[in-house]
Each structure stands twice: as C-alpha cells, then as structure tokens.
Amino acid sequence: GATAVSEWTEYKTADGKTYYYNNRTLESTFEKPQELK
C-alpha cells in the first residue's frame, strides 16, 4: 500500500516562528498538525 505523505510543510515567519501550511486544503496553522504528531 501507498504511504500517506503529509500535506503539511513547515515554514518560518520573518520573526522566526514556525508554522505549518497544508498545500491541499490551503490551511495554515501555528499548532503542529495531528498528522505530524
């Protein structure tokens, strides 16, 4: 079976905060997504 690849990509803001962006739902969040835990 195919492994589900996380759609979340980790980015940093200009002031160094980490956030996560989902390229399928176009959602962004500062909290670590469930799929990455």
Results as ranks from 00 to 15, higher is better:
G1E: 14
G1H: 15
G1R: 09
G1S: 14
G1D: 12
A2F: 12
A2Y: 11
A2M: 13
A2G: 13
T3E: 13
T3D: 14
T3V: 14
T3K: 06
T3Q: 13
T3G: 14
T3P: 13
A4F: 08
A4G: 12
A4L: 13
A4K: 08
A4M: 12
A4Q: 13
V5H: 13
V5P: 11
V5E: 12
V5I: 13
V5C: 15
V5T: 13
S6D: 10
S6Q: 11
S6K: 08
S6R: 09
S6E: 10
S6A: 12
S6L: 09
S6N: 11
S6G: 12
E7V: 08
E7A: 07
E7P: 07
E7F: 07
E7L: 07
E7H: 08
W8Y: 02
W8R: 00
W8D: 00
W8H: 00
W8A: 00
W8K: 00
W8S: 01
T9A: 11
T9G: 06
T9N: 07
T9Y: 08
T9F: 10
T9M: 12
T9V: 15
E10M: 10
E10G: 02
E10C: 13
E10I: 11
E10L: 06
E10Y: 04
E10P: 04
E10K: 05
E10T: 10
Y11F: 12
Y11P: 00
Y11L: 15
K12H: 09
K12W: 06
K12S: 05
K12M: 10
K12V: 12
K12L: 10
K12G: 02
T13E: 03
T13N: 09
T13I: 03
T13R: 04
T13M: 07
T13H: 04
A14H: 10
A14G: 06
A14V: 11
A14N: 09
A14W: 07
D15E: 11
D15S: 09
D15M: 04
G16C: 10
G16M: 02
G16A: 01
G16I: 00
G16S: 02
G16L: 02
G16V: 00
K17N: 06
K17T: 11
K17R: 15
T18G: 02
T18L: 09
T18H: 05
T18M: 05
T18R: 05
Y19N: 02
Y19T: 03
Y19R: 04
Y19D: 00
Y19I: 11
Y19M: 10
Y19H: 03
Y19E: 03
Y19S: 03
Y20M: 01
Y20S: 00
Y20W: 15
Y20K: 00
Y20T: 00
Y21E: 03
Y21V: 14
Y21S: 03
Y21N: 02
N22Q: 01
N22M: 00
N22F: 01
N22R: 01
N22W: 01
N23Q: 10
N23V: 10
N23P: 06
N23R: 11
N23A: 11
N23Y: 10
N23K: 11
R24P: 01
R24V: 14
R24Y: 11
R24A: 08
R24W: 11
T25E: 01
T25P: 01
T25V: 01
L26E: 11
L26M: 15
L26R: 13
L26S: 12
L26D: 09
L26H: 15
L26W: 07
L26F: 15
L26T: 09
L26I: 02
L26Y: 13
L26C: 15
E27W: 03
E27P: 00
E27I: 08
E27L: 07
E27K: 07
E27V: 10
E27A: 05
E27G: 03
E27Q: 11
E27H: 05
S28Y: 15
S28P: 03
S28M: 15
S28E: 09
S28W: 15
S28H: 10
S28D: 03
T29I: 05
T29Y: 05
T29Q: 07
T29N: 03
T29H: 04
T29K: 05
T29P: 01
T29M: 05
F30M: 08
F30Q: 06
F30R: 04
F30E: 07
F30D: 07
F30I: 05
F30N: 06
F30V: 06
E31N: 09
E31L: 09
E31K: 06
E31I: 14
E31S: 09
E31V: 12
K32H: 04
K32Y: 05
K32G: 03
K32F: 05
K32P: 08
K32E: 07
P33G: 02
P33E: 01
P33V: 03
P33K: 02
P33W: 02
P33I: 02
P33L: 02
Q34I: 13
Q34H: 11
Q34R: 10
Q34S: 14
Q34K: 11
Q34F: 12
E35L: 06
E35T: 06
E35S: 11
L36G: 06
L36M: 10
L36D: 07
L36S: 05
L36F: 13
L36K: 04
K37I: 15
K37T: 14
K37Q: 15
